[in-house]
Design a protein around this nucleic acid. Structure first.
Lengths: 347, 347
DNA sequence: AGCATCTATGCAAGCGCTGTCATCCATTAT
DNA sequence: ATAATGGATGACAGCGCTTGCATAGATGCT
């Protein structure tokens, strides 16, 4: 015997296409065609079917639909983290664009762990998604093989630096160039002795690329990266604050400090503010991302803006247009969305 | 004729259970059982099957699996926004917990629009998800009907205040109580003349509930809510900053200002800092959420912490345990995770 | 009128799995 | 030795939908 909660009205009526067809007095195929808007349908039939479906509260079973037609309306989206507003914004761009096209995002979070990324993508592939959107261009060899053998549309987001060939399409920016641009800017402002405060850079590959670009450009311009302070764990305001404190304790003679991103830089900003260190007079600070919070500080943070929402949208678009473009070599496989240096008031 | 990109090795081999079965020299059912770890299987067979699957790079088709067995490993997750770190954290809690159980989240973003929520949930239902997790307890009547008739497991997150009966399970906190708690705290600190700065409260129902609870408690304690400043659009640091500026321009005699959330409050904090207004001496400010950023400010923000990650985890858990608990009335339909008032340094 | 065209609809064969039932050996018990 | 047990596997009928092909009126054209 089954006891049902009073508020649950019906035994979860397994409503099928057949029920709608019966009620509308037509065949299943006709209902299917009406619901998907394909083929020629008499207006009277269309109306009757729509009415029947509406009255019954019919919700088509997309699992069956996808199975029958090969190709689901699902898109896998893999991001490294959701602690940070950055990927949430990318995700928003992706989901919004997908929604317009009637597709849905299945998400996975890797925690910046490539092995986990491999597992997650593999699991995502089981839904035969229309495509996979993932952050970063660095993957395990096994994942590369899997995706290649699979033939699924793949978009790698955020990053475009790297020797590895693109899996399929790329939408992002050069983090090396972004780091270099900031180095150039800071040197032009007269700073010479630099420090760096970062978070766990072995995992955040793009932060490392920025640092590498930054350091290389400093060297080229005759400035020097005196010290690097790496804080364990993910980036955060607290880590940035603690990191700067530690860095300055060991090195009193720095002109400027580059942070792995804006969260960290805002932490540095607060450290300065709390300790009477004037920016940029006593110390210049700079970040990366162009987060709103940095631009609302009493002194606007000097940083590089990455078009995150746009990247998300473009990535989704790549999946959407992939069919037409499959053999169209005119479409570039890599889209560089660029970045914008924000010359704030902290450097 | 089809031209393939050189890097795409194979014509997307439609690898099926049958291929694996053939290679392992067993039947499809056996492969299926091995892969799902059910029924008695000879060790030699298991090894052979696993080997074949591995070598072929077989990824099972979950669409087919779900269709055949009724019940997909998908869970719909609906949040109002991703601009704000709050829902990103909830989402992280949900996805992490689901991942442990081998389920995957399909997400939808409503933009605080109930009509859109209805459409999104309806689309999600098409995947015959194991359950639906959504933020908020206020929905369109049609959506309530749809979910009730459908029998899907539903978890409403974040909020537990409301006359409407729960659709199924709830995990959240009382925003009215949170608002009241802050009012009590601020009055106890000696503040009497209050202001409020909020964002588009017609959409953010929970912010409204906090305000209502706050105002009611103030009245009960003999304090007065002098003015409310509503900034159009979503909450943001910029909106909080502008809102406080506007509020103070019109009302110079306020003791304390309650903000719709921490993003807004941080904006207010920056306004004070930039204008030489001392906190809490000249003006007390308080927010809601307990975001990290607020706790890293030079003066810790007075706020109420909501256990967002935990809510996400618990919500996912409700879906996971729903089966066993289906007839178990012992399990409460509503879980109140509570909140914690953080007596910071700004009030 | 007679035939080619359309337009509108139905039929039936799958899509790739799962789950039930039957089958077939090995064991162990009697 | 023979029956009773149980472990291991295969056959096969779907799950709910899509889609190519067939069918059948309704026109249009000569």
């Amino acid at each position: 015997m089954t006891i049902r909660h009073e508020t649950a009205p019906m035994p979860a009526a397994p409503l099928r296409l057949a029920e709608v067809a019966a009620r509308a007095g037509v065949s299943e195929s006709t209902v299917s065609r009406v619901l998907r808007n394909i083929g020629p349908i008499a207006e009277a039939t269309r109306v009757a079917v729509l009415k029947a479906a509406e009255e019954l509260g019919y919700v088509p079973n997309r699992l069956a639909g996808a199975l029958a037609s090969t190709g689901s309306a699902l898109v896998g989206v893999v991001v490294p983290s959701l602690d940070n507003i950055v990927f949430a914004e990318v995700l928003r761009g992706v989901t919004e664009r997908l929604e317009e096209a009637g597709l849905q995002a299945v998400i996975g979070v890797t925690g910046y762990d490539l092995a986990r990324e491999e597992r997650i993508v593999s699991a995502l592939l089981a839904w035969r998604p229309r495509g996979i959107v993932m952050a970063g261009i660095d993957h395990t060899p096994r994942l590369r093989d899997l995706l290649a053998a699979n033939g699924t549309a793949v978009v790698e987001m955020m990053d475009i630096d790297g020797a590895e060939p693109a899996l399929d399409r790329r939408v992002g920016l050069s983090h090396g160039a972004a780091g270099a641009a900031m180095a150039a800017h800071l040197v032009a402002r007269g700073h010479r002795r630099f420090g760096y405060v970062g978070h766990d850079i072995s995992r955040d590959i793009r932060a490392r690329k920025r640092l590498d670009g930054f350091a290389a450009e400093l060297a080229r311009r005759g400035a020097v990266l005196v010290a690097e302070e790496m804080v364990a764990g993910p980036s955060s305001v607290a880590a940035g604050r603690a990191g700067l404190a530690a860095l300055l304790a060991a090195h009193r003679d720095l002109d400027a400090v580059y942070f792995s991103n804006d969260d960290m830089a805002v932490g540095g900003y607060f450290h300065c503010e709390a300790n009477g260190i004037r920016m940029p007079g006593d110390l210049a600070i700079a970040g990366f991302n162009g987060l709103d919070i940095g631009q609302e500080l009493p002194r606007r943070l000097t940083t590089v803006r990455s078009p995150r929402y746009r990247i998300g949208q473009l990535a989704a678009e790549q999946i959407l247009t992939r069919q037409e473009a499959a053999e169209d070599m005119a479409k570039p496989a890599t889209i560089d969305v660029g970045f914008e240096l924000i010359a704030g008031e902290t450097a």
